[in-house]
């Protein structure tokens, strides 16, 4: 099941890479995708039954992506303002943030989203305790609860619907 999903995904990527499609190119792509799926299929999708639920796709496309793009734009304007400011208004530090997410993909997406949003960057993940170590460019809260609400609260409730 997992290998089949990876095969379809890899073939799709191949088709986009060699866009004007022709029969020999498509056949070669099927061969390469089958090889890739056979070799690394077990690493890709751990719980394939989740992929059958269409509500997760809708959540991903229409709630996670707009929030993500908006936060990303805010982050860039924020960083550009801090860099161009002559007084360099930074107050950096590493704080702890608590998270409820357990699955690997959910944690990866949460860490990537935190890295691309205003003033924060993931340094390390303690998966057993559910603690993320976040480097902030301007620390407002060092208390774990307040920092969690401030930093990961923007994404966590969405990602819980999608990946848990």
């Amino acid at each position: 099941m997992s290998k089949l999903i990876l095969f379809v995904f890899a073939w799709l990527v191949w088709c986009l890479l060699t866009w004007p499609p022709s029969l020999p190119v498509l056949l070669a792509g099927a061969g390469v995708a089958a090889l890739v799926a056979y070799l690394t299929g077990d690493l890709f999708v751990k719980r394939p039954h989740l992929l059958r639920n269409p509500v997760r796709y809708w959540y991903f496309c229409f709630i996670f992506l707009p929030v993500f793009v908006w936060q990303c734009l805010r982050a860039n304007v924020d960083v550009a303002w801090r860099v161009l400011n002559p007084r360099l208004p930074i107050r950096p530090g590493i704080v702890r943030v608590h998270t409820e997410l357990k699955s690997d993909v959910g944690l990866t997406f949460l860490a990537n989203a935190i890295t691309l949003t205003p003033g924060t960057m993931t340094v390390d993940i303690d998966r057993g305790a559910g603690v993320l170590y976040i480097h902030c460019i301007y620390v407002k809260e060092t208390e774990i609860e307040a920092a969690s609400r401030e930093i990961s609260g923007r994404f966590e409730y969405i990602l819980r619907e999608i990946f848990e």
Binding site: R91, P92, G93, I94, R96, V123, V139
Partner: peptide, 11 residues
Amino acid sequence: LWEGSVSDAYS
């Protein structure tokens, strides 16, 4: 970290 940093929970 830079010496003006506030906290270093990771270390």
